[in-house]
């Protein structure tokens, strides 16, 4: 047995727990801010429930582009009704949880779009504004569905398949990875603070500001370290990865559907 260490007296006693309800304190900026930040980060880091499709990623992007184009060009209610029908059939395949996520996302996006469309309602006519709003929500629905069906990894792959300039793809992919790594890191820092802060004692405002500043500095340091690690492993801003366009049987079906929708658009438009 090795020699024991002389512990100070207080460390050998039991520490009474200060109870949050014993003292009531008002606004605590540290708790408020950290709580908010933590909520945001856990949201960012939460695994998304993605609906797996059999489509090639690039086709998903093309499909989205075609649908958006058709929706924005379509003026006849009949055509819009047809397009919306196709869209609803695709929605039908989502699970309950995925549908909920989809609805939440669409709701958020629609609220933002209303802010932009409302002025046009006031300036022009209400009927025009509402028509615009209706179409915008339908288009946003396409985007929301797209986001529900594609992971970031696949989206990056799609961009490569479509021969988007590699530098742009690389920048995007690194940004996404960075954000993810940084969020994971920040969550840990926030955990450390949470473990040692008490809800009983209000933290003075200057200390909150100091901790927030520290958080910024550590994340900056951390991002630099990640960058250094990437440079050391030979990252120079170019990529040799080439993805080829591939088409499966399932993909042809989607392409066929897209083409027939376009044809329908031309037909309805003429008559």
């Amino acid at each position: 047995m090795s020699a024991s260490v002389e512990l100070p007296n207080w460390l050998q006693q039991n520490q009474p727990v200060t109870n949050p309800s014993a003292k009531k304190h008002g606004y605590n900026p540290l708790n408020k801010n950290l709580g908010w930040l933590q909520h945001l980060l856990t949201q960012l880091n939460a695994p998304q429930n993605i609906h797996q499709t059999q489509q090639q990623p690039w086709l998903q992007v093309v499909n989205l582009a075609i649908m958006i184009l058709l929706f924005s060009l379509a003026q006849k209610p009949l055509l819009i009704w047809l397009l919306a029908l196709v869209w609803l059939v695709r929605l039908y395949r989502l699970s309950a949880l995925q549908l909920y996520q989809f609805a939440k996302r669409l709701g958020h996006m629609s609220v933002f779009s209303i802010l932009f469309i409302l002025p046009s309602c006031f300036l022009n006519s209400w009927s025009l504004g509402l028509w615009l709003l209706f179409k915008t929500v339908l288009i946003l629905g396409q985007v929301a569905l797209f986001l529900q069906e594609i992971t970031w990894v696949d989206f990056i792959k799609a961009l490569r398949q479509l021969h988007v300039p590699p530098l742009f793809v690389l920048a995007l992919s690194i940004t996404i990875k960075y954000c993810h790594i940084l969020a994971t890191y920040l969550v840990q820092v926030l955990w450390a603070i949470e473990l040692r802060r008490a809800t009983t004692v209000p933290t003075p405002f200057y200390q909150t500001a100091k901790i927030m500043g520290r958080l910024y500095l550590t994340s900056k340091r951390y991002v630099l370290a990640v960058y250094e690690a990437m440079t050391l492993r030979g990252y120079q801003g170019q990529t040799t990865k080439v993805e080829h366009l591939a088409l499966s049987k399932h993909d042809w079906r989607i392409l066929g559907l897209d083409l027939s929708l376009i044809m329908m658009y031309c037909l309805v438009w003429r008559y």
Partner: peptide, 26 residues
């Protein structure tokens, strides 16, 4: 609940595996 978490955090001390993230003071 805040009350329960507060109790937990005061009774349990935790040293992280990557303890550098644990330090946030000057």
């Amino acid at each position: 609940t805040d009350r329960c978490q507060n109790h937990l955090h005061q009774r349990i001390g935790f040293v992280f595996q990557n303890s550098d993230v644990q330090l946030f003071n000057d």
